[in-house]
């Protein structure tokens, strides 16, 4: 895998040929208007749905190995 990753990095190095002076980074297409919505709850009461795919749960909680000694 290390060799493959080096191969990919060597290949993308060709971007160094490109003159990007004063070129802004493309963040998006600029087509979607930023929008605001009312700061109110629009969804909720989905506890069982949210927990329905938990690999392990105790009551309404996800579980993890003990993290505090």
């Amino acid at each position: 895998m290390r060799e493959e990753l080096n191969g990919i990095l060597g290949w993308v190095d060709q971007l160094n040929e490109v003159d990007v002076t004063d070129v802004p980074p493309m963040i998006g297409t600029g087509l979607a208007m930023p929008r605001q919505r009312e700061d109110v709850v629009t969804d909720g009461d989905k506890r069982e749905a949210i927990l329905s795919n938990a690999p392990d749960r105790v009551g309404p909680y996800f579980t993890v190995p003990k993290v505090v000694e």
């Binding site: 990753l5 990095l9 993308v12 971007l15 160094n16 490109v18 990007v20 802004p24 980074p25 493309m26």
Partner: peptide, 24 residues
């Protein structure tokens, strides 16, 4: 690879440069 190009030492060299080429 994605984590590498976003890491602090390489962000400008890879990710930011790529986003600029994307503009071009």
């Amino acid at each position: 690879m994605g984590t590498y190009v976003l890491s602090s030492g390489y962000y400008d060299a890879y990710y930011l440069r790529a986003q600029k080429v994307r503009t071009l």
